[in-house]
Amino acid sequence: MYTLLHGFYKYIIQKDEYCVLILGLDNAGKTTYLEATKTKFTKKYKAMNPNRITTTVGLNIGKIDVNGVRLNFWDLGGQQELQSLWDKYYAECHAVIYIVDSSDRDRVSESKETFDRMISSEHLAGVPLLVLANKQDIPDCMGVHTVKPIFNQNAHLIGARDIMLMATSALTGDGVDEGIRWLVDCIKRNSVDRPPRNHDDNL
């Protein structure tokens, strides 16, 4: 009887779980963005001091509940050598957040190449994409209007999937909220093609 009721309770409160990849070149602010997201959507979460965030080796994981769904973030390391690991995660993710360092004009073309390589993967077909022009708190950064044309060039690669480019500052938390809410709506719309991953409930 307890198992029956407990299982029923679990069944009632269970949320759809989706996985979101956070990608981008190294030093784009992926981990800082993840921290900002966790701070925004988790009550009583104390953010890590941004000065102490260093190069990600492997991956960072974050979990938030928003609009009745649970998002699992996989923040992967962006170093050149670690980029070869990205495609191992493509098949299981439900959305991708791609972060661009909009203060680094020298590497924006490299970022664009990496972005094209990522979206041309067949495992990511139809997955909603959120491109973030990060570091908007730096005075002489590129605005959305500069970054957008660069990433919009290959429309044939983007295809029919949902894509949005937004200006954010992971450090101050600007634009984090809107981005995540947009992404959740897209993921829900796309859940017919990519159904949520739900945990098995072990007795």
Binding site: F8, D201, N202
Partner: peptide, 9 residues
């Protein structure tokens, strides 16, 4: 091992 109400009932 998933919750199976029929089995339990």
């Amino acid at each position: 091992t998933q919750w199976d109400p029929c089995l339990i009932i």
